[in-house]
Design a protein around this nucleic acid. Structure first.
Lengths: 224, 224
DNA sequence: TCAAAAGTGTTGACGGTACACCCATGT
DNA sequence: ACATGGGTGTACCGTCAACACTTTTGA
């Protein structure tokens, strides 16, 4: 029996040096939509699971590897691909952009980071998929500690706060934010401070995933 | 290029007369898993979107039509179907079971309601899918007014409270529950009372979806 | 010495939780 | 008259939001 073809697509988010939220796009070489920007993705092979396919396509098309990859939604309207019936399982990923900037910028495959607020027109229904991913990110960052995936392993509380402010689009009170976050006991203060800044150096912290899982089991729920 | 075949499956929830949470299953006629219980579902046609396919399969296999149908997750491990590579887009649905009891029970296709706490062994990975659906229902019922989909159009506050107690698995204080729910201004008290009960007749209410959408736009968020 | 961000406590308002008794109805 | 669930108000406590000044560092 004939059923639709199946692809995966990835909405990859990163924070740039200026704390701006970015999405990773590739420029299509082939028709349809040759020359247009699109989400990285492609057909699912018969011998790989969906998330393996998503990671493979992301690696092949952009060189990016990510720790955090989660299924977003499956898009399956009849006319979303002019080549015929293609259903796509969309994923979203969070990466520490500093690790990837150079690779993506110099990449022969022409992958680039775009500010979420200034995405170019996208191929297929990828514009809608990206918006959906952003919506999910905004919702999920409030009740799961996934923001840390966008930061380097060692970060300051101000970096974390700016991350929340950018993604949620709202200012947050510094003292209250610090109290809330530190009270959760999820961050480990390191024996290091920020260096090379023209002001008082900030304490560096590390997120403790093990601690989070432990707290989760005892009924704790993350809330920002 | 060969890609996986695509099916849809539905986890349909209903509340029975004794306020027990039930799931609708069908008994398979064909191999693989002939004779085993399974979620209603089947292959996606080339000319129908995913949610249309889900509704069609549900209707064909059980006679049930539902107002509330939402995508759950797409399951795509390589070995989940012995026939070959099959990816399934799972949906969950909520129905007012009283409307469907007779149909399903007398249905030639052998569809039956099972208590969520006593599901038989299911075909494929349908057991895991059903559990995932239950988890989603438990989470979502707290922050979106979807519980009403499980009740008749006219219901009492006690019915609603029992619904929450059964699904969340916790007792709720009657006075606080009523205050919270009524304060939201989502329920319309009707000019009718419960009849035929051996105690004081309860006020009947109707959920106002229009009102909810209106409140949503002004930033209101449902919380129970 | 100046600029720029780090760091730190208290108070008041509000919302949530705990809790017990009388009422209406059918048998 | 009795059994069964329907319906109602208050007081306390804890949590969250608002808010401003001192400290450290490099230029």
């Amino acid at each position: 029996m004939a059923t639709p073809q199946l692809t995966v697509d990835c909405v990859v988010f990163g924070l740039d040096e200026a704390d701006q939220l970015k999405v990773l796009l590739i420029q299509r070489k082939l028709e349809p939509f040759a020359g247009a920007w699109a989400l990285p993705g492609g057909f699912v092979h018969l011998d790989e699971s969906l998330d393996v396919a998503a990671r493979r396509e992301l690696q092949e098309e952009t060189g990016v590897e990510t720790h955090f990859l989660e299924q977003l939604y499956t898009f399956g309207t009849v006319d979303r691909d002019p080549r015929g019936r293609v259903v796509t399982v969309a994923y979203y990923a969070l990466v520490n952009l500093r690790d990837h900037t150079v690779q993506a910028a110099t990449d022969a495959r022409d992958a680039r980071w775009f500010a979420v607020s200034h995405l170019p027109p996208l191929a297929f229904d990828h514009g809608a998929i990206a918006q959906y991913g952003l919506q999910r990110l905004r919702a999920k960052i409030r009740y799961e500690p996934i923001g840390f995936e966008l930061l380097p392993p060692k970060f300051t509380l101000s970096q974390l706060q700016r991350l929340y402010e950018v993604i949620l689009g709202a200012e947050i009170d510094k003292r209250n934010f610090r109290k809330r976050i530190l009270k959760m006991d999820l961050l480990q203060p390191l024996d290091e401070k920020q260096t090379g800044v023209a002001h008082r150096a900030a304490q560096l912290y590390r997120f403790q995933p093990e601690r989070y899982r432990q707290l989760q089991r005892s009924g704790f729920s993350f809330e920002v």
